[in-house]
Design a protein around this nucleic acid. Structure first.
Lengths: 111, 111
DNA sequence: CTCTACCCATAGATAAACTATATATCTCTC
DNA sequence: GAGAGATATATAGTTTATCTATGGGTAGAG
């Protein structure tokens, strides 16, 4: 059974951090944002999202605050910290390096 | 501790299959090939490589044959099968789709 | 005869993602 | 006012991929 992953493993933290550079968001909003920005290609399951947010909180890369949404529901809003912004930079650099390297391997031409 | 992976998780099978489109190779040669083609960015550890090859064998995507290397050592040479070539196509498509989608999320511009 | 490069393979730990489940509220429709 | 559906958080348990660590063994160079 060819099961398809909902995202490239290892990229979720980066995607969340990047999403938060645009504006503070609650978890559900982050998931929606990533899904919509990616034209429905990337789906962040709840079972992946909330543990990831806990991770990011623990690392001090985001901070959380309970507020009310526009639709009048209680939700936990996450904001990127300075350390989080720095971490995002690191992860972006590593990611670029990785996909460049993968591109080299996938290229057909051999010297 | 939380060591970073030497490659993007989920891409190893694709990299191995692609490497085998060029020529049959033994495990050690596959690892070397990926490392060199990627300018030493991607390193395939043996503990990742051999289980991955077992996986590919089991799926019927490669077949193996004991032969002698140029340096006169016994080695197991892996050859891509028809099913493996098909699988590679699938994985390449999914990979492209993923990194395109990730690119959309990482872009700064918002409509 | 020792060292390095070559070669295979597995066990166990770790981490990240998934499925499934639980809870709860708001809004809209019938 | 009942129910559906979208909004919202969270955890337990499972799966899977990768790493670390270890174990074997051979060829050739010095």
């Amino acid at each position: 059974m060819a099961k398809k992953p909902d995202l490239l493993p290892g990229t979720l933290d980066m995607l969340i951090l990047k999403t938060l550079t645009r504006a503070p968001l609650h978890g559900y909003g982050i998931a929606l944002s990533i899904k919509r920005l990616s034209d429905d290609v990337l789906t962040v399951e709840e079972g992946s999202l909330y543990p990831a947010l806990q991770r990011l909180l623990l690392q001090g890369w985001v901070k959380a605050e309970w507020r009310m949404t526009e639709t009048n529901r209680r939700a936990r809003f996450y904001t990127l910290t300075g350390a989080g912004r720095k971490q995002l930079g690191i992860e972006l650099t590593q990611y670029e390096q990785m996909i460049t390297a993968i591109g080299l391997v996938l290229k057909d031409a051999e010297a």
